[in-house]
Design a protein around this nucleic acid. Structure first.
Lengths: 112, 112
DNA sequence: CTTTTATATTCAAATAATCAAATATGCGTG
DNA sequence: CACGCATATTTGATTATTTGAATATAAAAG
């Protein structure tokens, strides 16, 4: 698309941001960092993924400015850039919860 | 991954949900439907996309249960399934706004 | 039952995202 | 300055996602 309206441009940025959330490892990283800042090694252990995988996902989160970094000697501590990211994820999780609950109730209805 | 922890499974579902948001056209559709329910033709006109494109994106939103449908004769009216979806998008938009604002201020700092 | 209007789907091509494995960089210490 | 630990990047293969164009279905009206 050569020419874009303002609304389209904003939606493009927003969609980009959302694509940073579109991976389970990155969601886990964000929730882990919300609990407390951690370095790469800690994330690797806590999430049970390989170090290159964690680093790759951290780069994506960094590129989207969703995390902050602080070097402490040899290790780099990552932290959540904005608490509203978790607020947004929690809202989505709540929607997900309700959807699954209604589906569960449908199953009960069919049984009876 | 053959065996998944509960946290991984939830994150997988959440990531799936986020991938439904990871497209500018779908973001525009959700905001348009939040304003008021619309049928496919109206969305096509309002968003300036082709009808097959809109229908394809609506199918994805339907599959994720983010929209409801109501047939009215020959046309099908789509509506937003849950207002929290817009709340979440608005939070992300606010984060985006702040990030861009700080970048803008950096530009000013460099100038002076 | 044919036509028209509204919506949905399929197909092929282009683009992008993912992962594991290997490799590279960077900092602190002896 | 060489070694070792912590982190980052590259590569190549695989898999997904998006789109336009063409086509299909579905309902209402005549």
């Amino acid at each position: 698309m050569l020419v874009q309206t303002l609304a389209q441009e904003i939606s493009q940025l927003e969609a980009n941001l959302c694509s940073a959330f579109a991976d389970p490892t990155r969601i886990l990283i964000l929730y882990a960092l919300n609990e407390q800042p951690r370095n790469v090694t800690e994330l690797t252990i806590d999430l049970g993924a390989t170090q290159p995988t964690i680093s790759r996902h951290l780069k994506i989160l960094r590129d989207h400015e969703l995390v902050n970094t602080a070097r402490q000697g040899v290790s780099i501590t990552y932290s959540l850039a904005d608490p509203r990211l978790i607020q947004a994820l929690d809202l989505l999780r709540a929607v997900l919860h309700d959807n699954l609950t209604s589906k569960a109730n449908l199953v009960i209805d069919i049984k009876s």
